[in-house]
Structure formats: structure tokens, C-alpha cells
Amino acid sequence: MYGINMAKGFLVTLKNFTKKPFTVQYPEERVKQHPRFRGEEFVWYEERCTGCASCAKYCPLGIIEIVTTPSETAPAQGDKYRLELFDISINRCMFCGLCVEACPYDALYMGSGFEQGQYSRKEMVIDIDHLRQADKHPSTFFRPQLEETGYDPRGGRPLHWQDVGREGWQWHQREKMGMRIDRPVPADLIPSDPPVDSSFVEDSPALSASKIEGDAE
């Protein structure tokens, strides 16, 4: 009425004029990124991977391509599959994180980057060599054991495959060596405790999955 409310509006904008801007100068300064951030630069630990291709099956877009052959080098040590191909074409990836959720051995992690602009689509495919050689800064997305350690992928050191597992890595290694042992029941399945992650249950397809997508085009 009588322009009073407009005058109030003018005061509001004037007040904001004197405030510190809430935006940041992006390349120089960045907003704080939560460790759970689902980003590019997938982190993959070959040592933990069994080649079960759960991630590939669970990807809504089918952008993960895995080709395995029976291992010739160390079958005696229980190394059943050798990974020929592990391609993630991130040009179509929507970073939903379902592959990470599906991985039963905690071998695949989301990354924390978001700055992988490329000039051609071919360069947008992360292949197995790239995954092997990349600096491993895994995101804590769907990995409570990492979150408990307070790990921050943006600032923290690269993690070794022995540091990131849900269970002790010795167990994992023994299973890889071919020793059939009872899997320890995850703490979240013990009824008295509040479950931390209930997707990690026995009838999960990831565990029963044995079919390997063999032939690449």
C-alpha cells in the first residue's frame, strides 16, 4: 500500500548489496564436497574384484562392459577369472551409484570428481588400464566402513585395496586363494543391532550371479 511494500523490497535488496556474496569463484575456490559425493573417476580395486559382473548387470543403462576369461596364470591360487575388459563409458553414466551398491566385494567405488570434460566420446570411456592406474580416492557412497574412518576423498590420501574393505582383507584374500570359509555374518544382520546396510543379504543377486558376459562385440 502506498508503495510501502515496494520500499521494503528496496531495503531488502540494499541489505543484500552489503552482504558477502554466497557464490564462490569456482576454479579457484570450491564449495565443500561431502565424502558421499557420487562422482566420476570410478575407483576399482582389481585385487578385490572377482569378475562377477554384478555391477554390469545392475547398471540401469548397461554402460559397464566386462569380459573375463578363465584364469590361466594362477588357478591354483583360486584366481578363477581374468578380467580382459572393464569399460565404463561415463558419457552415458548418470552416477546413480547402483553398480557400487551391487558390488558384493567392495571392489568398485564411486569417485569424487566432476570435471572430466573431453572433446570426443571415445575419450569418455574409462577402460581397465585407466582404472588400474588411476589414483584411488574412493567416495564413501554406500561404503559405511569408509565413512566410519572419516575418510575424505577430496583431501585424503589414495587408499590401498587392503584399507577399504568391509571385512578384513585377510578373509578376502583367503577366499580368493580358494579356501571355502563361512562368510562372517555382517553386523547389520544381527537383529539386536541397528542394521547399517541391509542390502547386503544372502539372496542378493550379486552373490548368486555366476553368469559372465563373455563375448564382446
Partner: peptide, 9 residues
């Protein structure tokens, strides 16, 4: 100026 009125840079 308008940037600052918008509370940005």
C-alpha cells in the same frame, strides 16, 4: 551492481 544485489559476485 546487480550481481551484488543478487548476493553474487
Amino acid at each position: 551492481l546487480i550481481g551484488r544485489f543478487h548476493n553474487r559476485i
